[in-house]
Design a protein around this nucleic acid. Sequence first.
DNA 1: TAGAATCGCCAC
DNA 2: AAACGTGGCGATTCTA
Length: 586
Amino acid sequence: MDLPVIRLIRTADELASSIPALAAEPVIGLDTETTGLDPHTSRLRLLQLATPQEVCIIDCYSFEAGQVTQLVDLLTATAPVKIAHNAKFDAKFLHHHLGIRLNGIFDTYLASLLASAGNEADRHGLDPVVGRYLCQTLDKAAQLSDWSGELSEYQLEYAARDAAILLPLYEKLKERLDEMDLLVTADLEFDCILSIARMELAGVYLDDKMWREQIEQTRKAHEIVAAELQEALGAGASQMSLFGDSSEQINLDSPAQVRDALARLGIEVDDTREWRLQKLAREHPILDKLLEHRHLSKNLSSYGESVLEYINPATGRIHADFRQIGTPTGRITSSSPSLQQIPHTIEYRSCFRSPAGRKLIVADYSQIEMRILADFAHDESLLAAFDSGQDLHRTTASQMFGIPLGQVTPRHREQAKGLNYGLVYGMGAEGLASRIDSTVQEAESLIDRYFNAYAGVARWLHEAAERAVNEGRSRTASGRLWIFRLDPHDRQQYGSLKRVGKNAPIQGTASDIFKRAMASLDMALLGLDARIVNSIHDELVIECEESIAQEVKEIVVDRMVRGAKEFLVRVPVTVEAMISDAWLKK
DNA sequence: TAGAATCGCCAC
DNA sequence: AAACGTGGCGATTCTA
């Protein structure tokens, strides 16, 4: 690639004179260089804006935030289209340091992910994407160089090249997305970027004192259980030892050592997973202790001190990383730390609080995946269940057992619930049986009853599985594509292919809906002291100033419902929302 | 001895 | 390869 012409911009005049040409372009490449990865502790050094003629490199160290209003206008407008690779990163720095809400984005990173259609072998850094679509290699050596001092010619060339390459990359990716009918989904994704960037910037508040107290309690309980287990398991070991060394300790965190220790007590197991130990616990009470220990160990390791290390020194809050396309179905995933797998118990969730003078709004979709299924399947019975506004599982029980709502027992409801949750994942009779604690025969009969009551659902699920086998791919309501790399002739993969064929369109459409809602909500909160702070597949947590909590709650519900209505035709959608002091649904 | 693989379990 | 889909992640154990 030829070296682009560089226009280095360090004065107000230079900036003013470069804006009109940029504004006249239909698309520009955008990239930034920063002194680190965290906008709260790092600075924005360069902003590169590329046209086919030249790359403007704006040295942000030469400007105060108030001096760049024309730039703000350019980047906030929907035109020209701004091409960036992982625009979330640039959007965060531009928002935090210059107050810019980046708009009109085409993100080559997200585009590449969509075009890969779930192929997890593909890499999506700028270098591999350029290699795949432009057959070029990029020199990324300068990326981690020191961007805080005098800049070398080499650094400027690197900065310019990264922005310039985005223009041809955009052309290729746009063409590819068009060929694959992915432009609608791409726009949905691009519209969502800013809401996720702002959520990461806002971060979530964790009461560290309360969290430490929780850890301490867990640690105490853990110690006691561990001692009891060492006693019980060690006794078995000493009988085996010629030297009778009963002080010998086993590592309770080692599945292999635990399995061997159990064997010495006459409990033979292939592995020591929860479900297996659970089955034998009635016969061997020590297994309950072991499971209790596992639970406490899990909590200490995954939800202990390590979470506190993520509290940002600059903000005192946790700014997790959210991957916008985290799964082939389009779900967002969270890491560092994962805020999507905090135990759903009051001890842990109550530590995620609203700071003084603020409130949290906790809002989630009610049975969104079942509603999507009802809508896709045009199943009149299931639609009627939702139309009635009654508790879904009780209504399902009433419909499948042919009894009035008033006669539905807790056991009936439990069985119906097991089916409602299980079937969108393609569950079979054995799975249902163990879930609701029944025999396989009973489970089979229940499944028959269920599909009799919901014949449309049965048909749709069957057809979805067939489509997965025949076409090897599926699409969501927005058109998001997942090409299954599973072999229908492989006996193992055949079953898996059918299950994923049933689940992917539903889970994926839920993602479409959720992203619509996030984008729309973030816009609606503009100008209010309210920010999205967490996003958990079908649940949003918003933090706001307490006096506007009621107003914000209504906006949240409205935007979430409207997001769903964009993709669903017939089924009603409900969102449950609470104003709270902690991450609890009261 | 660092990274990969495995086991196991948390969320929706 | 647990019944049932999608992930992240920590501790142990294996391997080059």
